[in-house]
Amino acid sequence: MTAGYLLQQLANGLSNGAVYAIFALGYTLVFSILDILNFTQGAVFAVGAYLTYSLMTGHIGGGQLHLHLGLRLPLWLAFTAGALISGLLGVAIEFLVFRPLRRRRADPLLALVASIGLATLLVNALQLIYGAQNHNFPFHALGSLPPVVYLGPVIVRSIQLIILGVTLLALAALWLFSRSRYGKALFAVAENPAVASLLGISVSRYIVWTFFLSGLLGGIAGTLVGLSYSISPYFGQNYGLIGLAVIVLGGLGDIPGAVVGGLVMGVIEALTVGVLDFYISGVGSGYQDAISFGILLLVLLFRPQGLLGRKLVQRV
């Protein structure tokens, strides 16, 4: 096993981890504010990808429906519009599911189950419209960009580099936001909604914005991942479980933690395959999930606050 080989596996892990990270960001954002797991995130992710696909190719359907839109947008415009509509979908989910449940002071478990139900509904709607088959972005969606780039001895798929870049950009934007007056108000809402409202902060408006942002991130992530592979109605659900593991790894509700958790998860998976399979075929790839989730369990036992989690000092 050479250093170049390990470096390549590390790069594989980081690039796949970037996908986990960008998915987990939207997840953790809602959790950090509302302490609920919004399982519609995987569905919004898929919807975002299909929206961009349809706006770009001018084609809706493949399942029970065949429609041709009168327009075809360039990738960047379709991407932006797709992400914004995904954000609005996030808002709609807040109004349709989470807000009514909060009003009734429903158990958080109920919100979780409701979100799983809505996610299933959304995914089935996608299947009805587009069919179960895979759709693909046009091959030249990314223009003249080469499919892979060589960083020294290491090969990385260009789209994967873009995903890593966008993830870090999103993190930076969230960091800047967190330093602003609005960001601090949002943190106040997260920590104590009653106190926040006594400071004049409109809690419901901030929650709506949170859902918008998380839907926006979901749409961005879905399109990027769709560009990287191909899209099918269920492709977001594969990220649901791993995304959950990632935000636990990073510390529930910890926003930078979600990114670090995603990257770490990606690297663990890559090294599991890279090291174990190198010596005994099929062992690492066969037990990949067992090993990643085993590590997750250890983290939970020894660092329940997550990898980055700082212990909160709470005096009462």
């Binding site: 601090k184 108000a185 943190f187 106040a188 104590n192 006594l198 400071l199 709470q314």
Partner: peptide, 30 residues
């Protein structure tokens, strides 16, 4: 409640509800 604050009523609740994860100055600015 947030509109009431805008009208000029400040409620300092029981149990010293400061935002514990934010520093003193950020608490004040909020």
């Amino acid at each position: 409640p947030d509109r009431v604050v805008g009208l000029g009523i400040a409620h300092c609740p029981e149990g010293r509800q400061v935002l514990s994860r934010m520093n003193v100055e950020d608490n004040l600015r909020l």
